[in-house]
């Protein structure tokens, strides 16, 4: 087991040795179920998970930064960052290990929404391909939000500041793709810029995956977004770890 796996394992275990994982999972599962069944699920008379996926970006805006805020802010606050970076591990290995552990944790949270899938399968004959691409999109979106949260957690020692900044950054990237936002920005920006704003948003790329369309540009968007923010996290951490 190399250093990457050691940190990955420690990080993933740490979620479950504290109440954090259980509190997060209970709240996430409650709201994901509540928002799905709140309105339109039965009335639509359609066996799909659209009501679940539609509300997911909004839920993630708050839930993912709450997972990400502790990643580096806590390490810097308690000083364990000094222990970690005087062990034989590179910054890139440590950042990736912690990021992937948190991403897997979010994957577990998403996997635990399986009763929703069982419900729609029981009620009708849903398009499984649509559900799979929806979950893939949700997992990639969680990774994107997490990468942003990871960056802000490295930027500030204070977890509350890291959380607020992450929520704002994630919200901007979600709401940038909403029709109301695009209508507003089109009043003063040229069409090319409006398309650029739309292209930067999570919403557009997630929507197309929800519809079952797996495009290279959507996958590339999430991969580049995650890689960019994680790389920025490593750079910031290298600069600020001792401050």
């Amino acid at each position: 087991m190399n250093s990457f796996w050691a940190v990955f394992k420690r990080e993933l275990k740490s979620y479950f040795t504290t109440p954090l994982a259980y509190v997060f999972l209970v709240i996430f599962l409650f709201f994901s179920g509540y928002l799905t069944f709140k309105e339109g699920f039965y009335e639509a008379r359609q066996a799909d998970l659209k009501p679940f996926f539609v509300n997911l970006p909004l839920l993630f805006v708050f839930m993912v930064p709450s997972t990400a805020m502790r990643l580096w802010a806590e390490e810097r606050k308690v000083g364990s960052v000094e222990l970690l970076f005087t062990l034989p591990i590179t910054i890139v290995q440590a950042v990736l290990a912690k990021f992937f552990a948190a991403w897997l944790f979010l994957g577990i949270a998403l996997a635990l929404t399986f009763p929703l899938v069982v419900t729609v399968c029981y009620l009708g004959n849903p398009d499984i391909g649509l559900i799979v691409t929806g979950y893939l999109g949700a997992f990639l979106m969680a990774g994107g939000f997490l990468a942003i949260g990871c960056f802000f957690s490295a930027l500030s020692k204070n977890q509350v500041i890291a959380f607020v900044l992450s929520v704002v950054a994630c919200a901007v990237l979600v709401f940038a793709g909403m029709p109301t936002t695009l209508n507003y920005v089109s009043t003063f920006l040229p069409p090319g810029m409006v398309a650029a704003v739309e292209g930067m948003s999570f919403q557009v790329h997630f929507d197309s995956m929800q519809r079952g369309i797996l495009q290279f540009q959507d996958l590339a968007y999430f991969v580049l977004l995650i890689a960019g923010w994680v790389a920025a996290c490593a750079i910031v951490l290298d600069e600020r770890k001792a401050s």
């Binding site: 420690r10 504290t18 000083g79 364990s80 222990l83 034989p88």
Partner: peptide, 17 residues
């Protein structure tokens, strides 16, 4: 870092472990 052992000021560790 492989060849040395380091005890930092305040002995930082992971409190929940």
């Amino acid at each position: 870092r492989r060849s040395l052992g380091y005890l930092a000021e305040n002995s930082p560790a992971y409190p929940e472990m």
